[in-house]
């Protein structure tokens, strides 16, 4: 009855809404937690104390080095064909503009291919990408590589339509990358609405001029920590089931959804198991990653440090795509392991979440998955998730305590059962 006990405690019992309340307290107290900032380190210290007070074991901080970029003041004003102040969000690692800004004519394109075809027109201009949203992993390429591709054809800056499934004039941010040998130009996201408007304007033959000002600055890497807490295994303590989310966020909104939800349902999974007096055969290890948004920087250093024990990891789990009502578990692993996971998910019949999908993944756990460790993540309402992702709308108001309860129950049942089964998940 362990599964029912976990479900009852999480969804109907005394632990109801605990993960939501804990998350609300943290994000209201600390706010957004951008890599390299004092707020992130404050959040880490709060979590360290909270996990100890919660009675979890082996609570400790593992030091890592993470990037430090700050947004500064930023603005974009369309000067022609009419005055229009635009909402923008600079992209992580972008350089700033000169103090007087960059004022230039705009070239609007809807794809990298169109940019290549019209390369001679791009020199000395601001390239605006109005790429349609297909899905996040495909469309995010424009945010990540937009500056480099524009710089290659002589552009002065790039403005990229926010990678979002829905917009209420809400720009989204995120990390972007430069390339060795290619000039670095400022880059920011604009709203879906402005990108589409400018596309319409140029299709009618209008000339568009924008003045872009960005105070973005990159600083040397700073010290940070991955936060770790455990329920030490009773029989095979050296074997691990890792359950995780990331504590860092972008510097907009509160980072409640990305990835406060994932971090706090992962904590909740251990709290539920502890509250029931359960101790699995293997160690259940909670890791709250730092600097995930910059590309899994904290997680990569954890992997480097711990990969020598890779044979001891039965399953790695990360929730980083929302904790609304999950439709099931995404899993990556051998067919034998998938069959076992399907049996485990059947235990969640009482809350009707039993499906197993492909593509278990997470920026922070992919290192392990690519090295052969089975991996799992929650499949959630991605349309809703990418409406708020990396935008000012990512606040606790988006979250729903009842949905978090259900997500935590799924997370706790899966992590506990895999941690307590007699054998590790097969990899062949």
């Amino acid at each position: 009855d362990v599964a029912k006990a976990i479900i009852n405690l999480a969804v109907y019992g005394k632990a109801q809404n605990r993960s939501y309340e804990r998350l609300a307290l943290l994000v209201d107290t600390v706010g957004p937690r951008l890599s390299g900032t004092k707020s992130l380190e404050k959040a880490i210290q709060i979590m360290y104390q909270s996990l100890k007070q919660d009675g979890l074991e082996n609570v400790h901080l593992e030091p890592v080095k993470i990037p430090h970029w700050e947004r500064g003041e930023e603005s974009a004003v369309m000067l022609e064909p009419r005055m229009h102040k635009m909402a923008i969000l600079g992209l992580g690692s972008s350089i700033g503009t000169p103090p007087e800004g960059i004022t230039a004519e705009v070239l609007v394109v809807t794809s990298f291919d169109e940019l290549q075809r019209r390369a001679p027109e791009a020199r000395g201009k601001i390239v605006v990408y109005n790429q349609p949203y297909t899905n996040y992993s495909q469309t995010v390429q424009y945010r990540v590589q937009g500056a480099v591709e524009a710089a290659k054809v002589g552009a002065l800056a790039s403005l990229i339509r926010s990678v979002a499934s829905f917009s209420i004039y809400s720009p989204h941010t995120g990390v972007q990358e430069y390339q060795d040998g290619v000039p670095k130009i400022p880059t920011a996201c604009i709203t879906v609405e402005d990108a589409e408007m400018m596309s319409r304007m140029v299709s009618r033959g209008s000339r568009i001029v924008i003045q872009l000002k960005m105070g973005a600055k990159n600083y040397p890497d700073v010290d940070s920590f991955n936060t770790v807490a455990e329920i030490i295994g009773g029989k095979y303590p050296e074997q691990v089931v890792l359950v995780s989310g990331h504590l860092d966020s972008w510097d907009v909104g509160q980072g409640a959804m990305d990835d406060g939800g994932g971090a706090f349902i992962s904590w909740e999974a251990l709290s539920l198991i502890k509250d029931l007096g359960l101790r699995p055969k293997r160690t259940l290890r909670l890791v709250l990653w730092t600097a995930e948004e910059q590309g899994g920087i904290g997680a990569f250093q954890y992997y480097q440090l711990h990969k020598a024990n890779i044979s001891k990891y039965s399953l790695v789990m990360e929730s980083d795509s929302g904790t609304f009502l999950p439709s099931g578990l995404q899993f990556t692993g051998s067919e034998k392991a998938r069959a076992i996971i399907k049996e485990v998910m059947n235990l969640l019949q009482p809350i009707n979440i039993t499906q197993v999908f492909s593509d278990g993944e997470g920026t922070d756990i992919n290192f392990w998955i690519q090295a052969g460790v089975p991996g799992a993540s929650l499949l959630d309402d991605l349309y809703k998730y990418f409406s708020f992702h990396h935008s000012r709308g990512d606040t606790i108001t988006v979250m729903d305590p009842k949905q978090m309860n259900v997500a935590a129950a799924v997370w706790a049942v899966v992590s506990y059962v895999i941690a307590d089964m007699e054998e590790m998940l097969p990899r062949s």
């Binding site: 362990v2 076992i340 485990v344 690519q370 007699e422 097969p426 062949s428």
Partner: peptide, 24 residues
């Protein structure tokens, strides 16, 4: 890639299913 050595299950899938059923 994987240095997981003892990947040989000692039990049949049916036995594993029964083990998991105990948690429900």
């Amino acid at each position: 890639k994987s240095i997981y050595r003892n990947d040989i299950s000692q039990r049949t899938f049916q036995e594993i299913k029964e083990e998991i059923a105990h948690y429900g």
